[in-house]
Amino acid sequence: MNSYYTWVTVSLCLLIILTRSLPFLLAGFMTERFNRLGKQLPAYIMLLLVIYEIDLGTIFHPPYALPAVLALFIVLLVHLMLKNTLISIICGTVTFILLNLYILPGSV
């Protein structure tokens, strides 16, 4: 077994157990502000992850991450219309793959 995989998986397992059991272990420390921070933070992180996945380095050179931006636009449209995670993912990914294959190659 791959040791990188083992370390990542075991650490994440412990991390999840710790984060999920925190309120059961120390209910007194969970202040309201901390609570709100934890609730709102993922929204910021998810957008950062989108940026990270597109890879900031690619937006400064042609094709300026256009396939990704266009595909994300499709995701936004489809998701606002249907609100179905799976369908939105499929539409976005298919758009991205097709754009890379036929219209703006060389950006994958």
Binding site: K39, Q40, P42, A43, M46, L47, L49, V50, E53, I54, A68, A71, L72, V75, L76, H79, L80, T85, S88, I89, G92, T93, F96, I97, N100, L101, V108
Partner: peptide
């Protein structure tokens, strides 16, 4: 398929949309 990893990007983007619809921040 090359570009399959965009599934991840779409997934994160959907969460951005969902969080916005939920909290309107």
């Amino acid at each position: 398929i090359r570009g399959m990893y965009f599934v991840l990007t779409s997934f994160f983007a959907i969460l951005v949309i969902e969080y916005y619809l939920m909290y309107k921040k």
